[in-house]
Write a protein that binds this DNA or RNA. Structure first.
Lengths: 353, 353
DNA sequence: TTTAGCACTCTTGATGTTTGAGTGCTAATA
DNA sequence: TATTAGCACTCAAACATCAAGAGTGCTAAA
């Protein structure tokens, strides 16, 4: 089934007009708005044809047409033109991201916020995590006889630490030994590879009767576990309520609740096309809560291994063109910042002129 | 103006019934529901009196009464009985908080989530920050000739770190010197006390032409600045939509947007009564967006100096009794955990049995 | 001081009625 | 053959009308 150029043009006009106005679009108003070279009657015939093809539908007899899921899909796949971002938008994105790059933990949530702000839809972001993370290196910083800091550098280049207070005394000599044994026996291991046998034998060879090793390895396991799971951020949820399709609060509430559930966010569609955006429309979404919403996601990556996701949720009547362009730009910027030159400090880091 | 006992009883019944049903309460239905010993006509007279006192109001002639702001205020101040939490609730709170205590960063946001979940209203939480924070101690962990980790222990007992990659080589000897000079000259200083003179003279005495000190001190300033500002978390925003007063999406959106604005949250009312909850009702709130909502806040503290806030937002028709009780319990639990025994590790830390 | 009774008010929901945008079809036109 | 003008028809949304019911205030009796 191949569409004539005119049919494509009309489908596109209907989709874009419906996205803009949220009202079913009729033949007359379509002719008025876009300046097509034909009369409303012709449009009517064409629309009727598009309807039998399953691309448009009628809410009821005497109303205009709205796109079906299939109609949106065709629009997204073939008709939509990727639009260039305005200068202001690109500048805004660049400066916002660059400002946050010092705080690596924050940049992801900030990117989500930025996306939401720019698109006027709720946005979410998942942090990038490496699959099997290990600890590359331990360090112990003695504080006093009752406390020390344990520092672990992970294979994904992040560093974690914890201040540990004890209710018994510990010599700095002991801490040195602890440090040595941690680095000798507990580096390069995934969380699953750290067995209680390993701990026992380490305790024996250190002569550790106080459970120091247990404490330190406990910390290691804790952060390896925590690092396994993605973190998720949601921003601009209130934008959902701007759209007439969510004027029914129950509907809105269902979706908002769904979106604020961390574990559900992780299950949202992932982009399969690398680097590009992926769009899932209405019933294409697996989650029941999203059967009449659409999701646009993009992937960003950090180095070669890790990748995170940033996405936008909205009604099926979403401004796909705009959202896809902006999202894609933001994801690219994020990838660039996170993989690239900006984490190298020393040349352009102005902290106080 | 002193209220008779019966008037108090009636006001209380009206408030509680309105909170439960969200419908104006009439004299007849009030007699039916609560078993008052008098007829509806008597109630009518009393209600009419309460209305002239400004405690109740009429939406229109032939409707029941609803409490005014003043009515709620009187209810909250004098009539409300603090209710005991159910065993399940206390157990739930205890176990939830205890589970999260290992991850200190997370416990505050988790407490917010818990509060929202338990009360069915949106909840927010602000992290506790000490007023003037300083760095107590630095540590440098060499990685290779192009990288090292810098660790800072702050006066509030938190530890921050950053992996620093360089585009030039640095000897471990140099790093040792750097470490020594940082600890000698840059500890115990607030962000404002770190001047460029200090940096210059340190660079001179270290013979640092590479800007190592600048990098390290830049990191110090960055975290001191970041540590100054509170962090805020919002949880369960979607609960707002459950209430009929927010069936109008525009209204709901205004409030949700307001609440998701970090800087606005910080301006919300702070409890002045130490440890206890504070309730601000409708127009008592300074923010225009909250003129017909209510806020219940409690304070938690960490040690002697630091204090954070945890609060709940809802319609003026909020279940104050329930919210105040739960919030107060959660804040107390939080204070206890954050100030107390649980951060001491070594005795009860089971990481892998 | 309380209560029963009653007229009155005003919202709410049900039931028409009108309006207008939009359709589908037919017949004329290019 | 493709397009267009014209026209009858449809249906949601907006508006008006009406009855039911919950609630009030007032008066007079207990």
């Amino acid at each position: 089934m191949e569409l004539s150029d005119r049919k494509k043009q009309i489908l596109r006009a209907v989709v874009e007009r419906y996205i803009a106005t949220a009202e079913p679009v009729g033949s007359k108003s379509l002719v008025d708005a876009c300046d097509l070279k034909v009369s409303s009657a012709t449009i009517r015939n064409e629309m009727s044809a598009l309807e039998t093809m399953g691309l448009l539908e009628h809410p009821h007899t005497s109303a205009g047409r709205i796109p079906t899921t299939l109609g949106y899909r065709l629009y997204v796949n073939e008709l939509m033109e990727r639009q260039r971002l305005s200068i202001e938008d690109t500048e805004l994105i660049n400066s916002m991201l660059r400002n946050k790059v010092q705080q690596l933990d924050r940049i992801i949530s900030e990117a989500g916020r930025l996306t939401s702000q720019l698109t006027n839809y709720p946005a979410y972001a998942l942090t990038a995590k490496i699959h099997e993370c290990t600890i590359e290196r331990f360090a112990i910083i003695p504080i006093d006889i009752h406390a020390f800091i344990i520092v672990a550098m992970l294979s994904d280049d992040t560093v974690k630490n914890k201040l540990i207070r004890l209710h018994f005394e510990v010599s700095s000599d002991m801490l040195n030994k602890l440090n040595a044994i941690l680095n000798a026996r507990f580096t390069g291991l995934t969380e699953a590879q750290i067995t209680s046998d390993l701990i026992l034998s380490a305790e024996r060879s250190l002569g550790d009767t106080l459970g120091l090793i247990s404490i330190a390895v406990g910390f290691a396991i804790e952060i390896l576990l925590a690092n396994k799971s993605h973190e998720s951020y949601l921003a601009g949820a209130s934008h959902l309520l701007e759209h007439p399709e969510f004027k029914d609060t129950e509907k809105a509430q269902r979706i908002l609740q769904y979106l604020s559930n961390e574990s559900e966010l992780l299950k949202l569609p992932a982009p399969d096309t690398f680097g590009n955006t992926r769009i899932t429309i209405g019933p294409e979404n697996l989650a029941n809560e999203l059967k009449d919403s659409s999701v646009v996601v993009a992937r960003y990556h950090v180095g070669d291994d890790m990748e995170g996701i940033i996405g936008v949720v909205g009604p099926t009547r979403m401004d796909y063109t705009q959202v896809a362009s902006k999202l894609s730009y933001i994801a690219q910027g994020l990838s660039w910042l996170l993989s690239g030159g900006f984490t190298l400090m020393g040349d352009n880091d102005d902290f106080r002129k």
